[in-house]
Amino acid sequence: MPLITLDPTNGPLGSDAASFEMAGRPLTLAGHTLGIIANGLGQSEVMFDALADQLSKWDDLAGSVKVVKPSVAVAPWPAQWAEITEHATVAVTGFGGCGSCSTRSMRDALDLEAAGIPAVCLVHTALVPAVRALCSLMGAPDYPFVIVDYPYNPTGNWTVDECNALATQVLDGVRLRLTASGADQ
């Protein structure tokens, strides 16, 4: 006998999401202020500091402003969000290596884009499927990000040397995603 049943989900991922648009990208990072929304996982703060140093050295970044969230997988406190959005003109989020942490960091990046601030999230390769799912939920399935691969540990428990090496490794990707030259690649 035919049977009618009900869909237990809210529909396909992103079916009720608002339309998403990336913020406009500058041609270069020269003179810009880098916002850093760190989730506090492992040694990610050290890595972000090294990244900011390298962008200042090679890209004439004007400066940086960093917040460390109250917990690894939550939004920044309102005061932290205000600090970033008032001062930063480009931003980076992460890292990133836990499942809920990575997806929340991606949400931070998408929120920054919605606020008009070009952003990029650093994501470990182990967490790419989760981040893709979050992007789809938010109506941004093709939003680009920078992938960190092994041998770096997914949960950010790196040595200082590894932090510096990782900052160097992601430098080109961050530059590419935050500027007009790479936003559509």
Partner: peptide, 22 residues
């Protein structure tokens, strides 16, 4: 408000929920 799904019979419905990942 939920979308509806039509099945041939009860066993077909049970299988469909597996196949849909529900």
């Amino acid at each position: 408000q939920s979308d509806t799904l039509l099945h041939e019979d009860y066993p077909d419905a049970v299988e469909a929920y597996f196949e849909n990942g529900y």
